[in-house]
């Protein structure tokens, strides 16, 4: 009789333990499912973002070359302004700008604009209207409202140039 009771009690304990384990495993399965769903959503979002900005990443690599071309254009000697070869180089710069336009990459407006740390990077401060950009040291670029590179600028400190 005692043996029967002991066996029943042991069986009940085992059943309880098994039920507890099933509950725990069910909980883990539910959480894993939720984690998987979240992961899928995030992966999809990342894939969309990557596809959108993949061209931007390539552009960022080429950008220093374009910067150099622009600087070269800014320092074109007076006596070469009508030179056909120099005009050809200017044509190449224009071609580059057209490609950027096609990919919806825009130059960030700077000089005369209010300084915005989301688009501009202040390198120096000097005479000029407070928080208004007085000079652009390096162009900034944006794509669909996303800053690819902040424009490096000089910002007015509210003092006058002539003391």
């Amino acid at each position: 009789m005692d043996d029967d009771q002991t066996q029943t009690s042991e069986a009940n304990e085992q059943l309880e333990a098994a039920k507890k384990q099933v509950d725990e495993l069910t909980e883990i399965a539910k959480r894993s499912m939720a984690d998987l769903q979240n992961y899928k959503k995030r992966a999809e979002e990342e894939r969309r973002e990557f596809a959108k900005f993949a061209s931007a990443n390539v552009f960022m690599e080429i950008l220093p070359v374009f910067d150099s071309l622009e600087r070269a254009q800014e320092h074109l000697p007076e006596d070469l302004k009508d030179n056909d070869w120099a005009k050809g180089i200017q044509g190449i710069i224009k071609q580059f700008e057209q490609i950027m336009e096609r990919f919806q990459i825009k130059k960030t407006k700077s000089v005369g604009e209010k300084f915005d740390p989301n688009k501009h990077e202040a390198i120096a401060q000097g005479p000029g209207e407070k928080d208004i950009i007085t000079d652009e040291l390096e162009s900034g670029y944006e794509m669909e409202g996303h800053t690819l590179r902040a424009a490096k600028v000089r910002v007015g400190d509210g003092t006058s140039a002539v003391e």
Binding site: F115, A122, I123, Q125, V155
Partner: peptide, 8 residues
């Protein structure tokens, strides 16, 4: 954005 405006 905080770093970019530090100078000002």
């Amino acid at each position: 954005s905080a770093k970019r405006q530090a100078v000002t």
